[in-house]
Design a protein around this nucleic acid. Sequence first.
DNA 1: GCCGGTATCTATAACGTTTGCGGGGATAAA
DNA 2: TTTATCCCCGCAAACGTTATAGATACCGGC
Lengths: 330, 330
Amino acid sequence: MQQSTLKKLSEVLGISISTVSRALKNHPDISEHTKARVRDLATAMEYEPNSYAVQLRTRQSNVMGILVPSINNFFYDSFIAAVEEEARQQGYSVLIMQSRDQLEIENANLHLFRKNMVSGVFASVSIETEDMTAFHRLRDMKIPVIFFDRVPELPGYCKVCLPDAEAARLAAEVILQKKKKKVLGLFGHPHLSITKMRAASFRETLERNAPGPQLSIDYPEGIDKSREVTLAALRGKDKPDVIFCMGDLILVGTMHAIHELQLDVPGDISVISISNGLFPTMYNPKITYVETNGAKLGKLAFSRMMSALRKEPFPEVSFLEAELMEGGSI
Amino acid sequence: MQQSTLKKLSEVLGISISTVSRALKNHPDISEHTKARVRDLATAMEYEPNSYAVQLRTRQSNVMGILVPSINNFFYDSFIAAVEEEARQQGYSVLIMQSRDQLEIENANLHLFRKNMVSGVFASVSIETEDMTAFHRLRDMKIPVIFFDRVPELPGYCKVCLPDAEAARLAAEVILQKKKKKVLGLFGHPHLSITKMRAASFRETLERNAPGPQLSIDYPEGIDKSREVTLAALRGKDKPDVIFCMGDLILVGTMHAIHELQLDVPGDISVISISNGLFPTMYNPKITYVETNGAKLGKLAFSRMMSALRKEPFPEVSFLEAELMEGGSI
DNA sequence: GCCGGTATCTATAACGTTTGCGGGGATAAA
DNA sequence: TTTATCCCCGCAAACGTTATAGATACCGGC
């Protein structure tokens, strides 16, 4: 029992291939009687259109591409899971690629997306990305691109963002409210717009309220770097009384350092972070954090994608709302 | 500038389409001179074979499918990341689907795999999966299936597993060695073979060494259930002195409960778990755990897949090695 | 001059689908 | 009966590739 095709259906029914095709597409040219016969046989023979033939013919697939720096990440995870879920419900499949923050791989992956003629692409750009020609080529092929999270500073493309500035502002306001004196702000790679926005907003909020606390900023990448930076700061003579962590991995590194020094949170040192949700709640006391929801962002991105595919208008840039989740760490 | 095709190349060079096709495939029928001309023009015109046409013609794609209960999971994450990485290097793309532990979605996804004629499928089955016909159908289509992690008890299929029995045994041995008296073992869904193997091995190891500790077992699912079960146990009169957690989420729930009760680890209660690695190290003191490496499993699974595709023989069932990572929680 | 052999290339038929166009038959209008 | 008008339906050409089966030309050998 092999794949059943339009041809086989047509042979069984004694009608032409094109009639079968049209009947299944509910074409007005075909009589209800014939449509019913075709539909019945199609279900009986488990007919499924051959995707590759359809795509060859119509030059479009029902596959969407997602490009992320790494799938092995608690935020992208939930983003991808959400998009995949929505996509499935709409009859799309999802091709997932990771750039590993390397430009070369990113371009190879975008190339694959083009080659596979995906219907649309969700992208969070790598750290190295400066040259946008690969994305322009997608646009030239009429493939919509929705940037998310790490978005380029590039007009003309749809972007859905975490409330970067607002989240940092919220965190900074908590710090002000708690009357902290010495703030250590730990951010991600300074090249990324997401870092720039968070850092700028954080700094600005603190400085606006003169005389604000003393602020020092660092950009550690990954758990180990963050641990080292925190260790150094906490051992220095100008010890901070609060540490702000821009993301989960930075938080984990910072907490490693705090645990190593056997410091009490929030007695010896306060901590506040931005996170997707799970990590801050694992500590005791729970870390106070501003929530950035990957699943929500995924749903938003997907709805933008559907608008783009339907040629409906939509805002170029959108932000989620930020929410402060109180823990006991500050 | 649209896609360049064999036809366009042939028109430019004044030779037939089939010659161009063969030249690019390095067919011996074609003279070196022609091959060189074709290759040069092909690179100049950025020729890329149209995947859909190739797949329509050859009836096979260079896409592999991965089916997991949820992508939003720290173990599957690293598994998928590893497979994706290997696949990319071999020129394959990866289609990722999540079953959300629902049979219906799982079947729909397997269906999609068939429809997309993937070259192979990696699958970790859902909790509900009992009926294996969907997998049999894949095999009927000569699509290799590599089961991983949650594998069915089904002969004739390739399976790569975490060292379930061994990991549980290692953990149990630590418990024996520390002379614990009352053990609470928390496992996942009792339906899964992975749970059965871990639970059986755990119980057996403890009971073999008479007079062993007293053992009670529960099967909480997810963080909240695990938290509740742990709370109940720790509040009961027959308080355990060590808790074994089969997975990350169970561990997180247990730790929530321990934090709520303000208990000291390992003073008041010891904890030991099986994990992919990150979570146990986040706590203070770090949790002692037996490591199960998703990335390693991914690489193993991929090499099995390549063997299957090349029709090479390979062992039906394989296990990784387990390694005890000492923390300070017991 | 005919034949078999080799080296190089072409023609053509698929693969399964979609779609513009055209045609046949029935019914209604003339 | 003829002509116009529908409603159904079929023909055939794509989409870009691969594979089978020739075609053509050239060569040496009998």
